[in-house]
Simulated assay, not measured.
Amino acid sequence: MMFAAFLLSALFADPAAATQPKRETVLEFATCVRRRAPDRVRELLATEPGGEQEQRIMSVIAGAYNACITGRRSLSLQTGMFRGQVAEMALRDEPQMREAAEALPGSPPLKPNVGSLEQQISKLPAERRDGRFIEYFRPVYARCVAGANPRGVAALLPTVPASAEERGAIVAIGETLMQCMPVGVSYRIIASELRPYLMSALYYTAAQARAKG
């Protein structure tokens, strides 16, 4: 119980005011790209989260839609944050996808394989390895949570970011968050950062299920 209390308190360590500008910037960019290139966004959402194909498509998006960066010369944006935002939009706007997500049965938690992640990072050039673990870890961790508790993750959809309702929805999946955390991994869960990855994982899992029939 003490560990659960520590974990859930860490979820809300970020003040809403500090994360709102970044969230609004991501939302603005994602809305613009989705309007201008819906087929490219669907292509992105069909790729495996965190995979090489995802990075390839995201590189195209980042380079082709500078007009979507209003009032800025550039935008530093993590792929997972952007993908999560467009995935959440799609889940809200496409009833069939949301129904598929809510109908997922859930499966035993499949924790991230730390050794496999470290091996992937070791293949990067030496100058690019430092501080990359969480970048590789987060999408795999989110897939574990969404796969084990899809209905709990789907409960985030109607909530407003940084709201009491969002907080309640995340507290409700606290047990799943712990079940998916590998032993020995030090990862400070922050709601504003985790939500987009959960949305991305939920959409991908639902799309895979629909494709299998």
Rank of each mutant, 00 (worst) to 15 (best):
G106E: 01
G106N: 03
P108V: 02
P108F: 03
P109S: 02
L110C: 09
L110H: 11
K111H: 00
P112N: 02
P112R: 01
P112G: 03
N113E: 14
V114H: 06
V114I: 13
G115H: 13
S116W: 10
L117F: 01
L117M: 01
E118C: 10
E118Y: 08
Q119N: 13
Q119M: 15
Q120L: 12
Q120W: 13
Q120R: 14
Q120S: 13
I121H: 04
I121C: 05
I121T: 05
I121M: 06
S122M: 09
S122T: 09
K123C: 04
L124Y: 11
L124K: 15
P125V: 09
P125G: 08
R129C: 11
R129A: 12
D130K: 15
D130A: 15
G131F: 04
G131V: 03
F133M: 02
F133R: 04
I134C: 09
I134M: 10
E135M: 13
E135N: 12
E135G: 12
Y136V: 02
Y136K: 10
F137I: 04
F137L: 08
R138S: 04
R138C: 01
P139N: 06
V140C: 09
A142P: 02
A142S: 08
R143D: 07
R143A: 11
R143N: 05
C144I: 01
V145K: 00
V145R: 01
A146S: 06
A146M: 03
G147C: 01
G147A: 01
G147M: 02
A148V: 01
N149S: 08
P150D: 07
G152N: 04
G152V: 00
V153T: 02
A155H: 07
L156A: 05
L157W: 00
L157C: 01
T159D: 05
P161F: 10
S163N: 11
S163M: 10
S163D: 12
S163V: 12
A164H: 07
E165Q: 14
E166K: 11
E166W: 07
R167C: 06
R167A: 14
R167D: 09
A169H: 04
I170L: 15
V171I: 14
V171D: 13
V171F: 11
I173G: 06
I173E: 07
L177C: 14
L177P: 14
M178R: 15
M178G: 13
Q179M: 11
Q179N: 12
Q179P: 11
